[in-house]
């Protein structure tokens, strides 16, 4: 599968409708495609290009700027170990080394069984809980080496399935704007002063 499925296409249309210009939906839609396939396929990028009305090269240009988009298959779990300044002061680098040993892959590598991709990453905004990591963007704080091994075991055994979805799935709760409550996307062209401001001004005068 590579183009968006029927369900995802419907979701994509819903997301698109929230934005004043379709290209603004590109990053959310790239996430959707990655959620579907676990990584970003060329077919998906071509499909998104059609959906937002740009060329595939433009989609690639955007997608390749952002680290979360994987243009090759990655493991079911992407483990991001923070090795940035705050974490490295208290063992981030060592945690990454340990993770390399445990998983038997180098930074950037994917285990042979396709379960894990390991990456040393920049600050993930949990600096006071260093050293920390994310497994498919779910945090683990103040991780000891033993805790890391346990996490890997748990993930392999499926014991974390409820908390950590497979790679590509970000928020499991989606925003839905009920049609009757929607104020609507505001296109940049030809708008006038919002009603509440105009009303306040005429009150004042």
């Amino acid at each position: 599968m590579a183009r968006l499925s029927r369900d995802n296409l419907a979701l994509a249309q819903e997301i698109l409708a929230r934005y004043p210009r379709p290209k603004s939906a590109l990053i959310p839609l790239l996430h959707l495609a990655q959620e579907q396939d676990g990584w970003l396929t060329e077919d998906a990028m071509e499909h998104l290009a059609e959906l937002v009305g740009v060329t595939p090269a433009e989609v690639l240009g955007t997608a390749s700027f952002y680290e979360m988009f994987k243009r090759r298959p990655v493991g079911t779990y992407v483990i991001n170990v923070c090795t940035d300044i705050a974490c490295s002061l208290v063992g981030g680098d060592e945690l990454l080394e340990h993770a390399e040993e445990t998983l038997g892959v180098r930074d950037g590598g994917t285990t042979a069984d396709g379960m894990f991709t390991l990456q040393g990453v920049q600050c993930i905004a949990a600096c006071t809980e260093a050293p920390c990591l994310q497994a498919n963007y779910r945090y683990a704080h103040r991780v000891s080496h033993d805790e890391f091994d346990q996490l890997v075991d748990d993930l392999r055994a499926g014991r974390k399935d409820a908390e950590i979805p497979r790679h590509g799935v970000l928020a499991r709760v989606r925003q839905t704007i009920p049609a009757e409550r929607a104020a609507g996307a505001i296109v940049p062209e030809g708008q006038s002063e919002p009603a509440w401001l105009a009303a306040a001004e005429s009150d004042a005068s």
């Binding site: 740009v54 060329t55 090269a57 433009e58 690639l60 240009g61 390749s64 700027f65």
Partner: peptide
Amino acid sequence: GDPLIHFTER
């Protein structure tokens, strides 16, 4: 109007 080449990576 043929944006077929683009910056990629970062």
